[in-house]
Design a protein around this nucleic acid. Structure first.
Lengths: 106, 106
DNA sequence: TATTTGTGCAACCAATCAGTTTCATAAATT
DNA sequence: AATTTATGAAACTGATTGGTTGCACAAATA
């Protein structure tokens, strides 16, 4: 079971759940009301999000509030960071072509 | 065929390919040498990356140089942006708990 | 105490995925 | 012209995915 953050956010429903609970913790039932899918399907998504620690449970009687663990998203941001230099500079446009040409000569 | 950026970066091999060609365009054969997998498997990954425009081809005779389309990564960054406010402030820690409590009273 | 409510979990299913093997094609080399 | 090289594409395979249905169980309510 490969359960990392990147795989977790690959599914559009899970991204929607993340966005939904970002501002307010919610129960599985409340979350499921926002989607065209069963409560159990949402529950499975929540389990995946919990396993990769993108989401945290807060028990309250028999209700379970799911809350976004926003810090975990930094992991994605950190990976993106490597490429920010590229898309922010014009390195991507010009310099890489030159590098490629240089490489071809070898 | 669900072919979006998020699904594309879900696979660890594809993330490694992205990182590999970030600084220098490469041919499929050259890329495959870096992995414990067949050239054809790499070729399939490149097709997926091309389809979601994370990667661009540059033909040169019979060789095809694959080049990172770093701009496309902004799409992921833009999605992350929504949550940056949360993990940068202490909103995540304190205020959301209050929001949740407020919600419970309803 | 009996029933309802909120939840997770297991079993199953069709679709998709990542990989392999095999083949086709076109460019470069002999 | 024949061979080698670089590549993509198709067919197949086992594993994984996202969904469903049905069940178990504990907390809340009647």
């Amino acid at each position: 079971m490969r359960r990392d953050v990147f795989q977790a956010i690959a599914d559009p429903t899970r991204r929607a759940i993340i966005l939904l609970i970002a501002s307010q913790a919610m129960t599985p039932n409340a979350i499921a009301e926002h989607f065209d899918t069963s409560r159990q399907a949402v529950s499975k998504h929540l389990r995946i999000l919990t396993e990769c620690e993108l989401v945290k449970q807060e028990h309250n009687g028999r209700e379970i509030y799911y809350q976004l663990e926003a810090n975990k998203m930094k992991q994605i941001d950190k990976w993106l960071e490597q490429f920010k230099k590229i898309w922010e500079s014009r390195f991507n446009e010009l310099d890489k072509v030159l590098l490629t040409l240089k490489n071809k000569k070898k």
